[in-house]
């Protein structure tokens, strides 16, 4: 049986190489070719924001969705976007996997017609800029590129201005100084070659997270033989842990490479981190009232997430 799987990364992106592609191969091997995949990378099948709908309507059988694009259907999943929580992809992924196994994050995915197979996170967003940004005082009135409302709020909570600029224009905007800095996942920096236009990159900040979930159409999944479903979930477990570790490692490598190119890859001091965390606490509070509507479920989700991500 052949499953159509769509995602929005290019096939060279680490998330595709160590995550999506690796999982498809593992499933194909574990089922001895009983299941094969047709892969539609880089939004070939549909735009990133439409992937969940595409699986729902049977345009695709499976997709690696970025939950941030589906805030409306998956409000609880957006908890991962909050700043100040996980410190590495490994920690964040372990927390996400636990929450996808059982609880509101899983429930809302099932409700929207898909089964979560596995999930993982990007390493926490860092700040890239043309000067060293530390405590909130350094951020005052800077134009920081952010993606989505949570990040914009993060920038604002630090005293900066959250600027929305589409992906294709970020490089030029940083180069010319339209942007003073960017919040970005380090793994995606090479794709946009942003290291060419900044001089300082933080590496132990936590300016928000990002989660991916591999989903399969619910009826389609339930129609698969038991052995196949188990194989998918087992492979998912391994791949989630693997891609998390691979991303953390690649950041080590990238940091080394960038330092060699004369970029200041720096660590915040404990004081700076504490000051940032206390400023960014507003963002979680806002999430609770706006997206969580102050409900008990949201409070519980936030509490559980806090517990799972603290070391």
């Amino acid at each position: 049986e052949t499953l159509r799987l769509g995602d929005f990364q290019s096939t060279t992106h680490i998330v595709s190489v160590e995550g999506t592609t690796r999982w498809m191969k593992a499933v194909e091997e574990a089922t001895k070719g009983e299941i094969t995949f047709e892969h539609f990378p880089s939004e070939q099948a549909t735009k990133a924001a439409a992937l969940l709908d595409a699986v729902n309507h049977g345009i695709l059988d499976a997709a690696l969705i970025g939950t941030i694009y589906h805030g409306e259907s998956l409000p609880m999943n957006s908890v991962v976007g909050l700043p100040g929580f996980y410190g590495s992809a490994v920690t964040g992924t372990a927390a996400l996997q636990a929450m996808l196994a059982d609880g509101p994050l899983r429930e809302e995915l099932l409700e929207s017609g898909v089964v979560p197979i596995f999930g993982f996170v990007l390493p926490p967003y860092q700040v890239l800029a043309k000067k060293r940004l530390g405590g909130p005082a350094d951020w005052s009135n800077l134009n920081i590129r952010t993606a989505g409302s949570t990040q914009a709020m993060t920038a604002r909570s630090l005293g900066a201005v959250g600027v929305s600029i589409p992906g294709p224009e970020v490089y030029t905007a940083v180069e010319t100084g339209r942007l003073d800095g960017i919040l970005f996942p380090l793994a995606s920096v090479p794709g946009y070659n942003l290291q060419e236009v900044v001089t300082h990159i933080s590496r132990n900040g936590s300016f928000g997270g990002y989660s991916f979930v591999m989903v399969v159409h619910r009826d389609r999944f339930e129609g698969l033989p038991e052995a196949v479903r188990t194989a998918m979930l087992e492979a998912g477990k391994d791949v989630a842990a693997h891609v998390a570790k691979a991303q953390d490692d690649s950041i080590e490598d990238l940091a080394g490479k960038w330092t060699g190119q004369g970029i200041d890859v720096y660590e915040f001091t404990e004081d700076e981190l504490a000051a940032q965390r206390s400023a960014m606490a507003d963002v979680s509070a806002d999430w609770l009232t706006r997206i969580g509507r102050g409900e008990e479920t949201a409070k519980a989700v936030l509490e559980q997430y806090r517990m799972l991500t603290s070391d």
Binding site: S10, T12, Y171, P190, Y192, N193, E196, V197
Partner: peptide, 10 residues
């Protein structure tokens, strides 16, 4: 093209 292939945009 640069993003799809991770080629230097500069």
């Amino acid at each position: 093209y640069g993003v799809l292939t991770e080629t230097s945009i500069g």
